[in-house]
Computed example of a mutant assay.
Amino acid sequence: MAGTRFAPDRGLSVRMTVTMFLLGLLYVAFMAILIAVGVQAVVVLVIAAGFLLVQYFFSDKIALFAMHGREVSPQEAPELHGIIDRLTAMADMPKPRVAIADSDMPNAFATGRNQKNAVVCVTTGIMRRLDAQELEGVLAHEMSHVAHRDVAVMTIASFLGIVAGLMTRFALYTGLGGRRDSNNGPPIGLIIFLVSALVYAVSFLLTRALSRYRELAADRAGAYLTQRPSALASALVKVSGDIARIPTRDLREAQPFNAFYFTPALSGQSVASLFSTHPSLERRLDQLAKISAALGR
């Protein structure tokens, strides 16, 4: 977060480092096992690296396209730009591009590999439901993601999961499941499938844990920047309550993008905390209440 006034977060830095270290160990072990069973993994690695590079360099364009967002000028959305201008001045960071998605889903997201390539997008649904201070709290949260370089970190963290997923499909689609090694040992494809599935599961859990802490860190940094944690808490309550009333069909369409959103699109059913991209509403509100008490507000 060098070069911004967002509150430093040593806990986030430690968790990012530990997660990357564990993913690195997992990656090395995965490659060693594949080589040991005689798999030529070069093609899979090249394909996975290609996915990673595309996601890294074009994440802003991909996200806007997928979520039907469009960039807007200050003339088109003066109030929204005004809030972003104020936050960028407070945080001492470059102004991100500003976009709006025409959706009743009350949400917001930020993407882009760094501060110079960032875009912050809000839906028409969230703009209609929140007042100016609540919207400022949400946008401060999203701009904290930009300052933390969360998109770049999560893209790199997801690399191993992409490799494992591709290896699983490779084993299934090429019919390796019934092929045995030269010593009439166990099927090579079965080994690849089981190892890849295990690696994917572990990397999935690690990246989800990092994602949950990333959201808490963004709440905390945004609240300290605006000095109004109660406004962010109010926005969370409003958005979470209104999302629960969105039709299930619409929620299912939005769920693949949960990792991007300010708050996840859920159908109201409980989701195991290990698999969630976001911490629970109660945990987020509890953290904001403690910040509010610390600030004397």
Rank of each mutant, 00 (worst) to 15 (best):
Arg5Met: 11
Arg5Lys: 10
Ala7Leu: 08
Val14Ile: 08
Val14Gln: 00
Ala29Thr: 10
Phe30Arg: 00
Val43Arg: 09
Leu53Thr: 04
Phe57Tyr: 09
Ser59Asp: 06
Asp60Ile: 10
Lys61Glu: 14
Phe65Cys: 07
His68Arg: 15
His81Ile: 09
Arg86Cys: 12
Thr88Lys: 02
Ala89Trp: 09
Pro94Tyr: 14
Lys95Ala: 14
Arg97Pro: 04
Ile100Cys: 09
Asp104Phe: 02
Asn107Met: 08
Asn107Thr: 10
Thr111Ala: 07
Gly112Val: 04
Asn117Ile: 02
Val119Gly: 02
Val120Gln: 00
Val122Ala: 03
Arg129Thr: 08
Asp131Gly: 09
Ala140His: 07
His141Pro: 10
Val146Asn: 03
His148Ser: 13
Val151Met: 15
Ala164Gly: 12
Gly165Cys: 14
Leu166Asn: 07
Leu166Asp: 09
Phe170Asn: 06
Gly175Cys: 06
Gly177His: 13
Asn183Phe: 14
Pro186Asn: 12
Gly189Glu: 12
Gly189Gln: 10
Leu190Cys: 11
Phe193Thr: 10
Val195Met: 15
Val195Thr: 13
Ala197His: 04
Tyr200Pro: 05
Val202Ser: 01
Phe204Ile: 07
Leu210Trp: 13
Arg212Ser: 06
Ala218Ile: 03
Ala218Cys: 04
Ala218Glu: 02
Asp219Asn: 06
Ser240Ile: 05
Gly241Phe: 06
Ile243Thr: 02
Pro247Tyr: 01
Arg249Leu: 12
Leu251Lys: 08
Glu253Arg: 13
Ala254Trp: 15
Phe257Asn: 01
Ala259Gln: 06
Tyr261Ala: 02
Tyr261Ile: 02
Ser267Ile: 14
Leu274Arg: 03
His278Glu: 13
Arg284Tyr: 06
Asp286Gln: 11
Ser292Asp: 13
Ser292Tyr: 03
Ala293Met: 04
Arg297Glu: 11
